[in-house]
Amino acid sequence: MRKNTKYYYILPVYGWLLICYILLGLFSCSNINFADITGVGADVTPIGELTPQADQTTVYVRGKVTKQVPLLKNERLYQLDDSTGKVWILTHKNDWKVGQEVQTKGKIKYKNIPIADKDFSDIYLEVK
Score class of each variant (00 low, 15 high):
F27N: 12
T38Y: 06
K97H: 12
G106N: 03
N4G: 00
W96M: 13
L90M: 11
K118T: 09
S28Y: 14
P70E: 07
N31M: 04
T58C: 02
I108M: 05
G25P: 05
E101T: 11
K3V: 00
K86C: 07
N33F: 05
N112L: 07
T84S: 15
N33Q: 12
Y14F: 15
V87R: 00
F27T: 15
D95C: 06
N74V: 05
V65E: 06
V13W: 01
V40W: 11
Y9T: 02
G85W: 07
V69Y: 14
W88T: 03
W96N: 04
P52V: 12
A116T: 07
L80N: 00
V44Y: 05
I19S: 05
G39W: 06
S121F: 09
T104F: 03
V44L: 11
I47F: 09
V13H: 00
L125G: 08
V127I: 15
V127H: 04
Y7T: 06
P52Q: 12
D119Q: 10
P12R: 06
Q103W: 04
V69H: 11
L77Q: 05
V69E: 12
L24D: 10
P46Q: 06
K6H: 11
Y60R: 13
G48N: 08
V44T: 13
K67L: 10
L80R: 00
Q103C: 06
Q68N: 09
D81E: 15
N33E: 11
Q53I: 07
L90I: 01
Y21T: 12
K3W: 00
V65H: 02
P52F: 10
V98I: 15
M1V: 01
E75R: 11
K111T: 10
I37K: 07
L80W: 00
Q103R: 13
N4K: 10
I32R: 02
T58W: 09
V40G: 05
Y9S: 04
C29H: 13
C29E: 13
K73L: 08
G15R: 00
I113A: 05
Q53V: 07
G106T: 04
Y110L: 04
K128C: 01
Y8C: 00
K64T: 15
I108Q: 01
T66H: 07
Y78S: 00
S83Y: 04
K128E: 13
D122Q: 05
I10C: 01
K111V: 07
D117V: 05
V87L: 09
Y21R: 04
A116H: 03
W88N: 12
G63A: 02
W88E: 09
L72W: 01
T58K: 14
K93D: 12
F27G: 02
D43E: 13
S83N: 08
K128F: 06
E49I: 04
N4D: 11
Y78H: 03
L90Y: 14
I32M: 08
N74H: 07
I113C: 01
P114M: 11
D43H: 12
T91W: 11
E75D: 02
G25W: 08
T84I: 08
V61Q: 05
I108F: 05
L17G: 14
T104V: 09
K118L: 11
T58S: 14
I32V: 15
Y21H: 06
V44S: 08
K6L: 08
V59R: 06
K93G: 01
Y7A: 03
I89V: 15
A35C: 01
T38C: 02
I47A: 09
Y8E: 02
L125A: 03
K111F: 11
D81L: 10
L125T: 02
K118E: 13
